[in-house]
């Protein structure tokens, strides 16, 4: 009797429908996976093929009398990294602080509205940020730049005059910081609230204050997540085009962050691509390839940092 029931269960005609569903779904998933890989491959291929003329060009072949591609893209690489780096330096402490406030300090009725406001920052289009930075934040920062130039001029990044319009790399960094803030904040908050109660209570029961509990239980647990969040923010900052293009008054590479000058790769591409043709186009695409590689390297470094602490991550 039992055998018959088992057999009929095994040959349940209804399960055939389930199998068809499985097949369709796995087909869709497979196709989606292949499409993504194909798109990635085509973009990479396009980047490389279109970059080659610029990358291999000898003296005299590049536009505007540039001697080599690297002397052209090098200063912009540095400019991009400085702008993103400063943006992260400004945004990370604020983001971690806000996330911590929402997850562990604020009363329930406050934490939700604050979370919404932060998320709202992410909904503002980048061109609006650019306009805001150019017309409002820049002029607002001019007095600060004047003060820094007069009183902290001995520090290289403030040496050599200041911009009267405020359209500087530092202003661009501040705008970028505001733009990456919501990404880092919301990711950090997600991770902070997942801290095991068990570890928080272990710290409190030892006589830890709230801040000591955060240091002992929350930060160690969230370290990998914070690094990932910052890297995600860095990805956004490195690739941000519109805001920098509008805010920054570009120029040659200079250590001075509070005067006009410097340029980032995405802004350079955005500003020049519409009118570019021939070798100029190849140069800009090659610059895009360089940006792609930078982002990739940064992400790999971040992964390496995270994996170095694997033994102590609590995953085992």
């Amino acid at each position: 009797m039992t055998t018959t029931t088992q057999q009929s269960a095994l040959h349940d005609p209804k399960s055939a429908g389930g199998r068809a569903g499985d097949k369709i779904f796995s087909g869709i998933a497979l196709t989606a996976g292949i499409v993504i890989l194909a798109i990635l491959a085509f973009v990479a291929l396009y980047l490389v093929v279109e970059s080659l003329p610029a990358l291999t060009a000898g003296e005299g072949e590049l536009t505007n009398g540039k001697t080599s591609f690297w002397s052209y893209v090098g200063p912009m690489m540095v400019g991009t990294l400085i702008a993103s780096g400063v943006a992260l330096l400004l945004a990370t402490p604020v983001a971690v602080g806000v996330a911590l406030f929402i997850s562990h300090y604020s009363p329930k009725h406050l934490s939700q509205p604050i979370g919404y406001v932060i998320d709202l920052l992410a909904a503002i289009p980048s061109v609006v940020y650019g306009a805001w930075g150019m017309t409002f934040l820049g002029p607002l920062l001019v007095p600060a730049y004047r003060w820094l130039s007069e009183n902290a001029g001995w520090i290289p990044i403030f040496a050599g005059g200041y911009s009267q319009t405020g359209r500087t790399l530092f202003t661009a960094s501040v705008v970028l910081a505001v733009m990456v803030l919501p990404i880092i904040t919301s990711m950090c908050r997600e991770i902070f609230v997942q801290t095991p109660k068990l570890h928080e209570e272990a710290a409190l029961a030892l006589g830890a204050t709230r801040w000591e509990m955060v240091k002992m239980a929350v930060f160690p647990f969230a370290r990998a997540g914070i690094v990932s969040a910052v890297m995600l923010g860095l990805g956004r900052a490195l690739g941000e085009t519109m805001a920098v293009a509008l805010v920054l008054s570009p120029g040659v590479l200079s250590a001075n962050l509070i005067s006009a000058g410097n340029q980032t790769i995405p802004a350079e591409i955005a500003l020049n691509f519409p009118e570019a043709f021939g070798m100029r186009q190849n140069e800009l695409i090659a610059a895009g390839l360089v940006l792609f590689v930078i982002t990739l390297v940064v992400n790999m470094i971040a992964r390496w940092i995270v994996s170095r602490h694997k033994e102590f991550s609590g995953a085992n």
């Binding site: 209570e201 272990a202 029961a205 006589g207 830890a208 002992m216 102590f312």
Partner: peptide, 27 residues
């Protein structure tokens, strides 16, 4: 109060990111 009255929990909860030595010294 809590540094005078210690507590051991239902599930063992050593700090996962700390060594054995650091766990003992945590408090």
């Amino acid at each position: 109060v809590r540094s005078n009255v210690g507590m051991v929990f239902q599930r063992p909860n050593p700090f996962p990111t700390m060594t054995i030595r650091e766990n003992v010294l945590a408090g």
